[in-house]
Computed example of a mutant assay.
Amino acid sequence: MILTLRHADGGFRRLRVSPDGRSVAAADGAERAQITASTPGSVDVALGTDRYRLPVTVQPDANGS
């Protein structure tokens, strides 16, 4: 899944979200996404000078855990 984050100035960033919701990566390949834990239920994502706080929804793995 591709997540597009739009800026007020017309710019945008695209992130590729893994199918299980456990990770994101820069979809355009320009810069590597740096991901850190934030508050419960969210992560902070840094791409260059841009910073985002995103909600996290993790799907259970195949073992049901």
Rank of each mutant, 00 (worst) to 15 (best):
A46G: 05
A26Q: 12
T49V: 10
P60M: 08
A37Y: 13
V24T: 01
P55S: 11
T57W: 07
G64L: 00
S42T: 15
A30P: 05
A26R: 13
N63H: 04
G48S: 06
R16V: 01
L54H: 06
G41Q: 11
D20R: 04
A30Q: 15
T36W: 10
L5H: 04
L5S: 03
A8N: 08
T39M: 11
S18R: 03
G11W: 05
V17P: 03
P40C: 10
A30S: 14
V45F: 02
V43Y: 08
Y52I: 01
T39A: 14
R32P: 05
P40E: 06
T4A: 05
D28A: 05
D20S: 01
P19I: 08
R6C: 02
A37M: 11
Q34I: 14
L54E: 06
P40H: 04
V56K: 00
G10N: 01
I2K: 00
S38N: 13
A33M: 03
S23M: 10
G21Y: 14
A62R: 03
S65M: 01
L3H: 03
G64D: 00
G11Q: 14
S23V: 09
A33D: 11
M1Q: 07
S42E: 08
G48V: 05
A30T: 14
L3V: 12
S23Q: 14
I2S: 00
D20P: 05
R13C: 04
D50R: 12
Q59N: 12
R22L: 07
N63Q: 06
Q59E: 11
R53E: 11
G41F: 09
F12V: 00
D20A: 09
